[in-house]
Amino acid sequence: MASETMANTIVKTETKEDVARSLAKKMRPRESLIQGFLFICGAISILTTVGIVYELSKEALLFFRDDRVTLVEFFTGSQWQPAIEQFGIAPLVLSTLVTSTIAMFVALPLGLASAIYLSEYASSRVRSILKPVLEILAGVPTVVYGYFALTFMTPLLRNIFGSDVVQIFNTASAGIVVGILIVPLVSSMSEDALHAVPDSLRQASYGLGATKLETAVRVVLPAALSGITAAFVVAISRAIGETMVVAIAAGAGPRNFEWSDVTQNYSGTPFNPFTSAETMTGHIVRISGGDISYNSIDYNSIFAIGLMLFFITLLLNVFSRRIVERFREVYD
């Protein structure tokens, strides 16, 4: 330090060597340490993903290599019955599709509406009460939501639509409750996106004589679209991946069907939300919880399902990003 201050004060007598020394690259151990640490953190999350994909693929490959399995049957078959060696994934995928779609129909409007309310309407006092409540809601264990579906939502649905129509285990109840479960997620991510929209845009809108609603829905919302879509993508992934609720409330067996049923006997297909059906995740936990032996075809099949889940979520991510790129309003 001392030599540095000296060099600074007697600038005129500085020799070329002095200058070179004072400008020379310095070791900054703390900087490099922290940089290294951050790099490792980033690397760990990437390596974990790679590891998961590797493990899934390895075991799934064992499954697809098996003589009893064909790729064609896997993708086009409408029966999933490992006991008699039928491996068509459609019943599981379609049930997942049904529960997730129902969940999104619940979560998107509710989540977005509460985000708009919190970000654009609520006074700071109301917000300071509501936000923690939402966070508590997000912290409730999913198994509790599962029993909420079974003991509250299902009886409610049976009351409304009749107990002869709605089975005790059904995808509607599970889907609705999964939707409720992800409302806080949609709401808090969307609120962040809305909040990030610069105040100057709101001012501009009000200055033109816009009402609060016009400002929120037609200025702030479009400007926050890319953040909100990110929220939706995370929410859909969450809905597809949600396990406990569907395992408890949706049913404990794949809803096998015939493709011809889709047009002729609709109520016998997984598309009927009032009958029991097993989703991909539901099936995975049930099978892995049972006493099946490693390296049996049943065991390997759940990795194939897992890989399928992974790709569906990945595709959703890619597609929604594409869509956002087209519609978003860039404000910065």
Partner: peptide
């Protein structure tokens, strides 16, 4: 106040066009 602002418009310090 909405009606007031329709008759009395405002231009701000920092240009703030909509991202439209």
């Amino acid at each position: 106040p909405v009606e007031v602002r329709r008759r009395i418009g405002m231009v701000f310090q920092k240009p703030n066009p909509f991202p439209k």
